[in-house]
Design a protein around this nucleic acid. Sequence first.
DNA 1: CGACACGTTGATGTTAGTCAACTTTGGTGG
DNA 2: CCACCAAAGTTGACTAACATCAACGTGTCG
Lengths: 231, 231
Amino acid sequence: MLPCETCVVRNRAICSSLDMDELKALNAIGRRRTLEPGESLMWEGEDSVLVANVIEGVLKLSTGTEDGREQIVGVVYPSDFIGRPFGSTTGHGVTALTDARVCVFSRQDFDAFARDHPKLEHKLLQRTLAELDRTRRWMLLLGRKSASEKLASFLLEMSERLIEPNCGHGETVLTRFALPFSRQQVADVLGLTIETVSRQFTRLKADGLIDLPSRREVVILDREALAAEAG
Amino acid sequence: MLPCETCVVRNRAICSSLDMDELKALNAIGRRRTLEPGESLMWEGEDSVLVANVIEGVLKLSTGTEDGREQIVGVVYPSDFIGRPFGSTTGHGVTALTDARVCVFSRQDFDAFARDHPKLEHKLLQRTLAELDRTRRWMLLLGRKSASEKLASFLLEMSERLIEPNCGHGETVLTRFALPFSRQQVADVLGLTIETVSRQFTRLKADGLIDLPSRREVVILDREALAAEAG
DNA sequence: CGACACGTTGATGTTAGTCAACTTTGGTGG
DNA sequence: CCACCAAAGTTGACTAACATCAACGTGTCG
């Protein structure tokens, strides 16, 4: 039996465009891999040798300047696609934030496969367009929002993106969740320093909009007010 | 004779994936349109009814907050693709910065055509992936760079992107060019205020890195130093 | 229990934003 | 052709927001 048949993202990842025979062919060129928090799958500037699908876990995409400043330019979740097909270099590093499982392909193999399977390319195009939309919305945050607006926006986005797809049906947002980010990583997403992030967390808690049961846990107490704060 | 046959972007836009018959079919569902500076082709949040190819001119993609802050999230040049195929809403406005000519399609017609022409979808995918790469690089600028780094980076990018593709072959960057942006628009690209942009222009000129023969013209005097300034 | 990484808090500094005055430019009509 | 005007850009003084530097908790794991 194909590993794909029991894959939890089978029906959501780009693989969902393939029938059984095609899936078998794709499976033949891919392999599973697990990553621990902090472990990288690829590095900025490196030749684009791999692409992958996220099966489980959360990973960050990040770039940096020569002098060590870092910016997280994307966050990927189960069923998301990683890597740069049809291109020679990787524009950003990919690093696991949590324990993660991915389905990895050689870029060359994947490129060849994709060219022969327009339905797969179509799914990939849809995903890429959606990711571009999301990324552009994030630019508004980076360029024009204040620290408190940034953090509020971030927490709301988290509460929408961290939903486990298997549990329940109607639930569209989370009220309580575990952040897959350290304070430094939140700062790297929002273009702030760790101190500013910490202060804004404290303020949102003091104002009663959120609660922080532990370092990594967030409870949204007043979503309305948080949305207002997000600008 | 098809208008496409004499189209200056025929060999660079996504149309380059099509043979004569296919081009004829695509031409049948498209039409030309001209835009004046400041004129918009679509608006943020609107239903996605149009897509287009840029034939001539420069256009901005922009989003804003409720309270009027604006962020330019992309800039498109001849042969670039505009709009959101396979999606219901437009995430950002599209407005001409210069006189522009575009080749417009109804999104529904285009979607249907694209689904039947995998080579076109492939080109579109390549373009979208490249645009996503560029957008992510811009996030580093917005999140982590200082005002002077931002302006220096911006001028260097302009000098690379404004090259007329027809003139010459080897020339890969421009030393002198006309900015298609007002100071306010530069500010909206970089996530700064107009005053800060103006001060940084003055400083770069005073330091001898650039010259400003007129409001809209820029001459790069010391590309080396400008690149260093860009961080 | 202690060490260390992670996070918070406070004091101070710097950068870019704000507000306001002034200058330049380009366009229009007398 | 020139005078005038509005729009765009520049400059200066001041302020606010965030960064920086530094000290101080806190929880996690050997």
